[in-house]
Every structure is written in C-alpha cells, then in structure tokens.
C-alpha cells in the first residue's frame, strides 16, 4: 500500500482514507502528549497539593460537601462545588453579607483546626472528635520544621499500623515548630502573609453546627447495620473509639471523617 511496496499507486481513496486515519492517530497522540506536557508543568508541590485536593473533593459524596451557608441555614441544601474554598466562591458575599469573620479556633472539614497566636504564627491541631476517632497510642509522622504547607494538602499523618490517615492542612505557610498530642497541637505554622484569608475555615455558629453534624455522622457510621444509633440522647463519646469498637470498619470511618478516599 505504501511507497516502496510493489504495485502501489496513490489514488484519491488512499489519500482520503490515510489522511483521516493519521489525523485520528495524531489527535490521540497529541492528546496524550498534551496531558504529559501539562503533567510535567504542574509537578510542583503547591500545584500537586491543589490537584490532590480537587480530585479528592470531587470524590466526596454530596452529603459530605455541604456549603457552610447550608450549615447555618442561610442556603438550605446548598452543596459546595468549590473545594470548600470560600475564598474563591463568587456567592460567598451574597450569603455572609457584612458579618465579621469569626475569631478564635477555626476548623477545616477534615477535623484539623487553626488558632492565631499573638506572635503572628498559627497553631494547628486535631479537634477532639478527630483525636477520639484515631484513638490513643497512635504513631504520628510530623513534617520537619521548614516544610511548606499548602491549604488542604497533607499536613501530617497519624494512626496505627495498617491504617494511617493523613490530616489536611487548614492553612498555608511554613512549619516552624512541631508539637504533640500532649501539647494539644501538632504544628506551629508561619503563614505567608501576616493576616491570611481564612474564609475557607469554619468558625462560630457554622463550626458549632458542623461539629454537631459530625457527631451524628460518627454515630451513624459506628452503628452496626440494623441497629439504632445509641448516643442520640446526648451521651459522650469515649476517648478511644477504635479500642471501644474494634469491629467497626475503621478504614471506611476514617476515610469518611478525614475526607480521605
């Protein structure tokens, strides 16, 4: 068929068919090459963190992606399509109005929190529910001081052999000191700007409602199929849930609560 093949003569049919065929092949090749080129361009830690969070957020069920304004009742049923990034949400001002930004401890939906310190640094920790979900005696892998964190990226890892979870960074900045469970915080972070925009975190009434709902979620996840949740009357969770309920599927529960697919 091709040149240098005995008996080959170009015809209009050959040219048309081969042109279409190779155009298709070129399109496929070009598409794959474009993806590779973009991959090479985006292999920067900050961009990788952004993409990781984007894909993980996309995998979350709608019920886990409730908008903060749905939690406060300002926009009932609204589902976040923005990776919980209120900083980039066009509708944020519409729902929050001129209300002042909440102060004090601010929560990431992955159960980490951040608290501004007088020296301009931020303490980052794991909330009480998060600690109970992981349980006592967990191994903690903290990043070394000097490590740069991006919002929603992996801040540190903790857990037990065979089931380690990654905790998400609530704020971007440089790790300047590491803490421990005993200290009540795990990282001290120096943000890139003295007053970072923390609108993507929950505080005040929204945080209170969210924490209540998270408690309900834990109860539902822990209740064996066919059994009623047992803490709906206001009971208090034990300190080490995996130890108290070893038969539960902790891989799935940790995945659901710490937003890890």
């Amino acid at each position: 068929m091709f040149p240098n093949v005995d008996g080959f003569h170009w015809t209009f049919g050959h040219i048309l068919f081969l042109s279409i065929f190779f155009a298709v092949l070129l399109t496929v090749g070009f598409t794959a090459a474009t993806a590779l080129a973009r991959m090479m361009r985006n292999l920067r830690p900050k961009k990788v963190a952004e993409i990781r969070w984007h894909t993980e957020f996309e995998d979350l069920p709608a019920s886990d992606r409730q908008c903060r304004h749905a939690l406060t009742g300002a926009a009932p049923g609204r589902v976040c399509e923005n990776g919980f990034e209120c900083r980039h949400c066009a509708d944020y001002p519409k729902f929050s109005g001129t209300a002042p930004e909440p102060q004090g401890r601010l929560y990431h939906r992955g159960h980490t929190w951040v608290e501004r310190q007088p020296d301009g640094t931020f303490l980052v920790g794991l909330d009480e529910l998060g600690e109970k979900l992981i349980g006592a005696g967990a191994q903690v892998e903290l990043p070394a001081p000097g490590t740069r964190l991006a919002s929603h990226d992996v801040a540190w890892r903790m857990g037990k052999p065979g089931n380690t979870v990654r905790l998400l960074a609530p704020v971007e900045g440089e790790v300047v000191e590491t803490g421990s469970r005993e200290k009540g915080w795990y990282l001290r972070v120096k943000p890139e700007s003295p007053w970072p925009d923390l609108r993507h975190l929950l505080g005040g009434a929204a945080a209170a409602v969210w924490l209540d709902r998270e408690m309900e979620r834990v109860q539902a996840l822990l209740a064996p199929a066919g059994m009623q949740p047992t803490l709906a009357d206001g009971g208090v969770l034990v300190d080490d849930l995996p130890k108290a309920q070893p038969e539960a599927d902790w891989h799935a529960i940790h995945g659901a609560m710490f937003l890890e697919p």
């Binding site: 496929v28 985006n42 990781r52």
Partner: peptide, 21 residues
C-alpha cells in the same frame, strides 16, 4: 504518586477529545 495523580487529572480534562475520537 504525584506524577500519576497529575497525569490522571490532566487526562480527565482531555477526555472529551478521546470520547469524540
């Protein structure tokens, strides 16, 4: 693996081209 993660993400964005082909 970061390169796998980013490649998957970028491929996903180009999926309409492959669907058309």
């Amino acid at each position: 693996v970061p390169s796998f993660l980013v490649f998957e993400f970028e491929m996903h964005k180009l999926m309409p081209v492959l669907a058309g082909v």
